[in-house]
């Protein structure tokens, strides 16, 4: 895996007033890997992912996507370059049904509204793509259910399906398992696992079992800085990580 990184950050820094949320972060995501970002609350994980998707601009440093800086581009433009993201909060269109949610996502990827208005062929492609991602995410049986009427876990899955429908070359998933029960977590973990051969994923997640099971490489953040970044095995056995992060995490959990 010595290819060009699909995504790279150089000295990425973001300040909010006096607070430094992300501090000089360098990290690479290689094509085809699942790259997990671990860290205690307030470590700057969400800020980092917002920087990667262009939702907030960095104070210093830059984000390179396929070697090109994304600075100065709008969220929409970055999305169309191929960075798809899901949010920590459930972020779907509640009044549209499950299939329509995915169609909206697929349509923008397949040429926008006006493209599919003109061409029957395009309209069919959109529908097929939407059904396909619903199948991948095990939601076909809910295709015609308004998104608002689905269970919480299904809504989270739908969110992943929508990101898939835009056919991104890189997916940023912000805590896809947040608030899920054990069973649903396992289900989503399996879903993400099934995506590994086709997609590159950056994943923020609290659920350690899932992270260690899924990730090829892990970057551990503490106080806005990268503590250590490397293959999963290396992180699992790292003294530093165990001391600083796992220890603290453990304290938090038992406090």
């Amino acid at each position: 895996m010595s290819q060009e990184p699909i995504l790279a950050t150089r000295g990425l820094t973001r300040r909010f007033g006096g607070l430094v949320a992300v501090n000089g972060v360098d990290f690479d995501v290689r094509p085809g890997e699942i790259h997990a970002i671990l860290g205690p609350n307030g470590a700057g994980k969400s800020t980092l992912i917002n920087l990667l998707s262009g939702e907030i601009p960095p104070s210093e440093g830059e984000v390179l996507f396929h070697g090109k800086p994304i600075q100065g581009k709008s969220v929409r433009q970055i999305a169309r370059m191929g960075i798809g993201r899901s949010h920590q909060k459930t972020n779907i269109f509640p009044r549209l049904n499950c299939l329509q949610n995915c169609e909206l996502a697929a349509r923008i990827h397949l040429g926008g509204v006006f493209g599919s208005w003109r061409s029957r062929q395009r309209a069919r492609e959109v529908g097929e793509r939407a059904l396909e991602v619903l199948e991948t995410c095990h939601l076909v049986h809910r295709a015609y259910t308004p998104a608002a009427d689905m269970s919480y876990g299904e809504q989270r899955q739908l969110q992943i399906a929508m990101v898939l429908a835009t056919a991104p070359s890189l997916m940023l998933l912000d805590e896809p398992m947040a608030g899920m029960g054990r069973e649903e977590t396992v289900q989503v973990t399996e879903l993400l696992e099934s995506l590994t051969d086709r997609y590159t994923l950056v994943l923020i997640e609290h659920d350690m079992d899932s992270v260690f099971r899924l990730a090829d490489r892990i970057t551990v953040m503490v106080d806005g800085c990268v503590l250590e970044s490397g293959p999963t095995e290396q992180i699992r056995s790292s003294e530093k990580v165990r001391d600083v992060y796992l220890g603290r995490h453990h304290e938090e959990a038992t406090a």
Partner: peptide, 22 residues
């Protein structure tokens, strides 16, 4: 129409529509 679907999407969640690329 499709156009109307996008308008519904904007009504529900404009930010998400932008994140999708609209």
């Amino acid at each position: 129409s499709y156009f109307g679907q996008v308008l519904d999407g904007i009504h529900d969640n404009e930010h998400r529509m932008q994140a999708l690329g609209y």
